[in-house]
Design a binder for these strands. Structure first.
Lengths: 227, 227
DNA sequence: GGCGGTCTGTGAATATTTTCACTTTGCTTA
DNA sequence: TAAGCAAAGTGAAAATATTCACAGACCGCC
């Protein structure tokens, strides 16, 4: 039971690889080399090989990786074979938009409940999904086997919501509130901070544009750095 | 004209510091030390000092940083004194939710137009914001001084939308489509990939829980690593 | 069954980021 | 105005992450 410490940067890239493989599989490709993957998606081939090698020897020397087989391995590694049942806390616009975000379905996440504190919303439905009183979270989470929660409430309520849902036993939380939150170490909290992303764009625009292009910050899509 | 290369990790943290300072200012604090900031927000004090020092000597030895003054500096550095005018491409649920996302307003971004290709949507309004035909993007972007675009369309359309808006001169783009995109090096593309975040949670849940807590992955809110 | 080309897996080298630990500076108080 | 203390700024060290480059494995062809 060797505990390899895998960096989050690595596991994030696994998601990217998986998407690439899905695209390749759709194109009917049987095998793919790390080099081809790298070229096509602007990654470094050694990094791809190294990332994959943490989890096993999936490739065949002289051949590359079998697309379907690698895809299945990654799906397994990322835990996407098991359905995850999601509660979204906050039935505002963001919460409702997320409720039928296709990305959830694609990754085998099912949104099974919405929660809010606003009596006017409780009892209503967003598509198939009912809006419950946040007070009843623990009970409903238990009954509906909820294992993932999404925080889509205003920043000032985020910490207390987080405490409430972790107390109910939730171990994986995605947070959209732009505020730093404290969690127990056995809970995985992933904050998606749109404000930081926006301000990063603002910073870029505020930089004096280097007209010769030489001193520009490297381009990035948020996943890799060039050069 | 010394060109210091500032890492994006640094500028992202500036956003975090700015939020902390806003909170402190609201509490009436006059000064704050890097150590106090660090403790309160689980950062490393040397890192805070180093990040700030890239941009000038804002602190006073023996005292700390003047909250208001530092806040003003950071606001300036991040380019938040200038209003940015945003177009959202894709008037689906996500696009509409973003249209009145309060975070935009807070960071001095104003959503001035929505675009879509669906004739049924064009001409309608989301609150104050009209939905235009994406075909007319260049013209409207010019007229309305749009300098930031948000891509909120399905993945398969994202690349072509990106090309269209960069051709119209947009230099800063936030992308929500979970797909790798190519851009010119003078365009800043920031991809917010919810799929990766979700799958990161899934990976965490798929790990055998170390019951003694010793071998758990470090907690994270996506900004820092502990230990 | 050997040869040549291909491509993985990986140690070593490099690059980047974070943290440590020390020096310097400026305030405060006596 | 000197002493004491607090805290910024910063080179150096440590930790992480990425990239290079090559040995070894596999395939297909002759």
């Amino acid at each position: 039971m060797k505990v390899e410490k895998i960096s989050e940067l690595t596991t994030n890239r696994l998601s990217v690889y998986l998407r690439c493989l899905n695209a390749l599989a759709a194109d009917g490709a049987k095998t793919v080399s790390s080099d081809k993957l790298a070229k096509q998606f602007h990654l470094n081939s050694a990094q791809i090989r190294k990332d994959l090698a943490y989890f096993g020897e999936f490739g065949v020397r002289g051949v590359g990786y079998y697309v379907e087989s690698l895809r299945d391995h990654l799906t397994k590694i990322l835990g996407l074979t098991k359905e995850h049942r999601v509660a979204i806390i906050g039935a505002g616009r963001l919460g409702l938009a997320l409720t039928d975000y296709y990305g959830f379905t694609q990754s085998n996440f099912t949104v099974v409940a919405l929660f809010d504190a606003d009596a006017g919303k409780i009892g209503q439905k967003a598509g198939e999904v009912e809006i419950f009183d946040i007070k009843n979270f623990a009970e409903i989470a238990e009954k509906d086997n909820i294992d993932v929660a999404v925080i889509a409430v205003p920043a000032q309520f985020a910490q207390s919501v987080l405490e409430q849902i972790t107390k109910a036993g939730i171990k994986a939380v995605m947070n959209f509130a732009p505020t730093p939150l404290r969690v127990e170490t056995d809970v995985k909290l992933k904050t998606v901070d749109l404000t930081i992303s926006l301000e990063s764009l603002s910073y870029f625009l505020a930089q004096p544009a280097a007209s010769n292009g030489k001193n520009l910050k490297p381009k990035s899509d948020g996943r890799r750095k060039s050069k």
